[in-house]
């Protein structure tokens, strides 16, 4: 098994790294390589990304009262700030 940047980044996340800075420290990889590895793992479907915002949907919270469509993960948040993205390891078969 190859122990390259991709597996090291995945292992760091599995081991509980909470931020990309912690992944850098855990793997010894440069910031650019960690960022590129994450992009590639997202592309491969090994990681999933969720944008986080605590705001209401664009139509206001009332737009959510009926509930979002069944296949939607949640209401879209209308945060105006710089996006915070949560990266999680995908379980099961990749798409």
């Amino acid at each position: 098994m190859v122990d390259g940047p991709l597996r090291r980044v995945l292992a760091a996340i599995e081991d509980g790294a909470g931020s990309l800075a912690e992944v850098e420290r855990a793997t010894g990889l440069s910031r650019d390589v960690v960022a590129a590895s994450v992009d590639h793992l997202l592309r491969l479907g090994r990681l999933e990304a969720h944008r986080i915002a605590a705001g209401c949907p664009a139509g206001g919270c009332a737009a959510c009262l009926a509930g979002p469509p069944r296949d939607a993960p949640a209401c879209d948040a209308a945060s105006t700030g710089p996006g915070l993205v949560a990266l999680t390891v995908r379980r099961g078969p990749t798409p």
Partner: peptide
């Protein structure tokens, strides 16, 4: 389920965005 947060850089807020966000809520 392990999770990593990707933090954005700080930025200077703009009045237009502040007022827009305030108005949505």
């Amino acid at each position: 389920e392990p999770m990593v947060l990707d933090l954005p850089s700080y930025q200077r807020p703009t009045l237009r965005l502040l007022l827009g966000s305030m108005w949505v809520r």
